[in-house]
């Protein structure tokens, strides 16, 4: 145990001085998370992005559906803060609308897909046997069936439904590879002694999965979810071909970027606002993910690195 940890321990005991309070894992992780500057910064950025996405549209007099027939493809100005598009739409209003859509779609689909992957993979890996075979057979089936084909076939059914269905579809075609990785990890974790210890204590199998297996692969799950956020925001555009979710005149960051890419050099305002916001979003999510991972994983160094330096004697 290092001197810094001692300091940390003393801090902790000082905080809880009169009657030592036993904190659960959640509280400890939260406390450690809040100690990480970068992670908190990421969280703040995310909150600001949401604020921008939902308050931003009211700051400008333009609506994302409006078209200004006097201004086609004009650069940023006092009336059109981010300029206008080929058909005279206000880029600022479109970007704000796009941010709204993309934040919700990206975060929700990422969490959903990682969650399904974690639960299915861990269940298959932990129970083994027939559970494993059936679940993995299903995963393999989804992997080999071309998802676009299924979408093309089923798209008439879903046409014009809510965006929530769209989120579910995005997640549904994204979780299988992770599920296979999780299953592999679960199979090796199952052999670890702490799982055996929980089993002989009589802990319920589902509780073992949620309480012991999944937290021990938190790094993988968090990284997966982080990558998924950016991935789904972009992937969403390709699904738009099939008439799901975001349809013109509605926009998302993905569609704005897709439309603006061709003219990025000539008319940069079509592309950059959405691009920068996307990068900011993914970065903020990555910081939060990193912080969460470090907070869960108590590697001796990181736990104390943000505790008062200099006190370490």
């Amino acid at each position: 145990m290092t001197a810094e940890e001692l300091v940390l321990a003393q801090e902790e005991s000082a905080m809880t001085a009169p009657e030592p309070v036993t904190l659960g894992r959640g509280r400890i992780v939260l406390r450690r998370f809040l100690r990480r500057k970068l992670a908190v910064a990421g969280l703040v950025i995310l909150v600001l992005m949401f604020a921008l996405a939902f308050i931003g549209p009211y700051l400008s007099s333009w609506n994302y559906k409006d078209q200004d027939y006097n201004n086609f493809l004009t650069g940023p100005s006092a009336t059109h803060w981010f300029g206008t598009t080929q058909i005279g739409s206000d880029v600022y209003a479109q970007t704000m609308r796009g941010l709204q859509k993309s934040l919700i779609i990206g975060l929700l689909a990422a969490v959903l897909s990682t969650g399904v992957a974690g639960i299915v993979g861990a269940t298959a890996g932990y129970f083994g046997g027939w559970t494993d075979r059936v679940l993995m057979w299903f995963v393999d089936l989804l992997l080999v069936l071309p998802s676009f084909l299924i979408l093309a076939i089923t798209s008439p059914l879903f046409h014009g439904r809510t965006w929530l269905l769209f989120v579910i579809l995005l997640a549904a075609f994204n979780w299988m590879v992770t599920a296979r990785m999780v299953r592999g990890l679960a199979r090796s974790l199952r052999e670890r002694e702490f799982v055996t210890a929980a089993e002989v204590m009589g802990v319920h199998p589902l509780r073992i999965i949620t309480r012991h297996l999944l937290p021990n692969m938190a790094s993988l799950l968090i990284i997966d979810a982080t990558l998924n956020v950016g991935g789904t925001i972009i992937a969403e555009t390709s699904l738009s071909y099939f008439g799901f979710g975001v349809q013109p005149p509605d926009v998302s960051l993905g569609t704005i970027i897709a439309d603006g890419t061709d003219s990025a050099l000539n008319y940069p305002w079509l592309f950059y606002p959405a691009g920068v916001l996307l990068i900011l979003t993914v970065m903020a999510v990555a910081f939060v993910g990193d912080g969460l991972r470090d907070a869960m994983d108590d590697a001796a160094g990181t736990a104390s690195s943000t505790s008062t330096p200099g006190d370490a004697a």
């Binding site: 036993t22 670890r192 702490f194 055996t196 309480r211 012991h212 021990n216």
Partner: peptide, 23 residues
């Protein structure tokens, strides 16, 4: 039961309070 290697038999991701509360 108490096993040979406590580092392996205690879930590394749970604080001691939660470990003891589990049973």
């Amino acid at each position: 039961a108490v096993f040979q290697d406590p580092l392996a038999s205690l879930d590394p991701r749970l604080p001691v309070g939660d470990l003891l509360a589990e049973p």
